[in-house]
Simulated assay, not measured.
Amino acid sequence: MESVKIRNYDMYWDIAADIHFPPSFDKSSKYPAIISAHPIGSCKEQTSGNVYAPALATEGFVVIAFDASFQGASGGEPRSIEDPVQRVEDFRHVTDFLVTLPYIDEDRIGVLGICGGGGYSINAAMTERRIKAVGTVTGANYGRLMRGNFTNLDPIGALEKMAKQRTAEARGGAVHVDDLLAGSVDEARAAGVTDRDPLEATDYYRTSRGQKPNGLNRSVLSHQAAAVGWDAFHLAEVLLTQPLCIVVGDQVGAFGAYRDGCEIIERAASKKKELIVAEGWSHYDLYDKPEPVAIALGKLIPFYKANL
């Protein structure tokens, strides 16, 4: 593995990424590449880069797992912004970097997105034609979440709060940062959380199972408004034509990856598309548990080999 910094020339900061190489890598050869994108508020050391990237590299792909702008080890201020437009733009900069590498076949670049990274991967592929195949694991449409459970089904009320906070910060007030998860599962239950997804998210991100220094699951309130008006699947019926492999679990929760997977399979203009349902497994099981991850990789590996 090699850690690199990718210059984001539009905004003047670097994107941090890890490149995972196949066995017996030969820099004089040409390889297909996969861009691996992490979940919302996460980092490349959580599932995208420590589970799926090495597994795909073992199968002959060069895999680049990157941190989103404002998150992880990437640049951008203030920290912990989850901006869908910038998240999609990050894919272009990573692709720009890949096509400068002599060992990458520019006609064989694919993407893999996990959770929110799945929605971003789909949206990026619609207008980034250098991406030739799209895979997602428990992919979620962040815009839908921000109009739904992430704003307590009150997007207008949430937008009003965001606007007031942005005005306060413009006048010199302190930046308000939300912790998206409780400190532990017990704390979440004590606060009245009962749904599978936030409880399992807490178990993943707030324990040794998935906790990483750069995976903070925090979000700047004043910069959340753009996400409320964004839709990962907008124009998929027209612009999403690449081969598509969507993996979801059937143990559903509030974050809605199962319904998003079904929706994008129905809406995508792609002629080659497949929905894989990992029966008996949930959103966060697919992050790192061996059996559901094996189900996902058992479909994704041949998918990428056939289409890259």
Rank of each mutant, 00 (worst) to 15 (best):
N149Y: 14
E45K: 15
E237D: 07
Y120R: 10
D250T: 02
I40T: 08
Y52P: 00
E274L: 10
A294C: 09
A306Y: 05
Y205K: 02
E200Q: 11
K161I: 03
I40D: 00
I109K: 00
K271E: 10
K271Q: 08
K299Y: 01
G192R: 09
K212H: 02
P78L: 09
E263G: 04
S74K: 12
P198N: 07
L239T: 13
G143L: 01
E45C: 09
A232H: 02
E160N: 01
W230I: 07
C115D: 03
V175H: 11
V85H: 13
E274P: 05
K212T: 08
K164L: 13
G135E: 01
Y142H: 09
P102V: 11
I15N: 01
T100G: 11
S3T: 12
R79Y: 05
G173T: 14
E59C: 12
A226S: 03
P213E: 06
A257D: 13
G210N: 05
D67P: 09
P23K: 12
N141D: 11
F91S: 06
N50Q: 12
H93M: 06
V175K: 15
E291S: 12
L308F: 11
D285F: 05
A296M: 07
N123I: 14
N123D: 14
R144K: 12
L308H: 09
G261I: 12
E187N: 13
G76S: 13
V252S: 04
A168P: 04
I276H: 03
E106I: 08
D10W: 10
N123P: 10
A37T: 15
R166I: 14
P84K: 12
Q165M: 10
K299H: 03
S3N: 09
A65Q: 03
I34D: 01
L221T: 14
D179S: 13
A17P: 08
R87K: 11
R218F: 06
S24I: 03
I104R: 00
L181T: 10
F303L: 01
T167G: 03
C262P: 01
D154L: 03
E187W: 15
R129Q: 15
Y52I: 03
E160C: 00
A33H: 02
E169H: 05
F25E: 02
S48R: 13
Y12Q: 01
V228M: 03
W281I: 00
